[in-house]
């Protein structure tokens, strides 16, 4: 992994727990990020994103009133001057698959399991820098492309309309023929 000078980045830390915000802020400061804003909930976070340049959002998932999913969908909506492409790292102690998939399907960029370590958070930031994913808009989703890998030998179901061949084969046919 490369060493990056991160001092020009602006980060927003969103968590309803004060001590958790302090932990993440200390990690970021240790990684040389000096422009760090904090928000206690989704409303404060949206206000901050609207009014200040934010390069990366690091947010909790379980929060009262506006939870992580609602906040993330608000960000990705791009309404009221919000940059919908801002990278979002979801930080959660709830790592059951259903929770991680919900965060992915709400438009997260990266997921980080609590307890947080400096190495893991730095790795997520490096991943955002080195592997930016294009964004995808479908009827029900806007966010980073959920396909991280493009495998030419992929044989699973092809779900996108563009993926289907012009001869009208449906997904099952496609699987049987490959």
């Amino acid at each position: 992994m490369k060493a990056y000078n991160l001092e020009n980045l602006s980060a927003l830390v969103v968590d309803d727990n004060r001590f958790m915000r302090t932990i993440i802020t200390n990690v970021l400061r240790g990684l040389s990020i000096t422009h760090i804003a904090e928000a206690r909930d989704g409303r404060e976070a949206l206000e901050e994103i609207r009014n200040s340049p934010v390069d990366v959002v690091i947010m909790d998932w379980e929060m009262p009133e506006m939870n992580g999913a609602q906040l993330l969908k608000n960000i990705r909506s791009g309404k009221r001057g919000i940059n919908p492409l801002v990278p979002v790292v979801v930080v959660s102690a709830n790592t059951i698959a259903r929770n991680v998939l919900a965060a992915r399907d709400s438009g997260m960029t990266e997921f980080l399991a609590k307890p947080v370590s400096a190495a893991a958070l730095y790795a997520r930031i490096v991943s955002i820098i080195e592997n930016p994913r294009r964004f995808v808009r479908t009827g029900t989703y806007f966010g980073p492309d959920r396909r991280r890998k493009f495998d030419p030998d992929y044989t699973g179901p092809k779900r996108r309309a563009e993926d289907r061949t012009s001869d009208g084969l449906d997904d099952l046919d496609a699987i049987q023929r490959t």
Binding site: R134, F135, V136, R137, T138, G139, E162
Partner: peptide, 8 residues
């Protein structure tokens, strides 16, 4: 739904 790609 059609899929639209947006450059990042």
């Amino acid at each position: 739904p059609k899929v639209e790609f947006v450059d990042n």
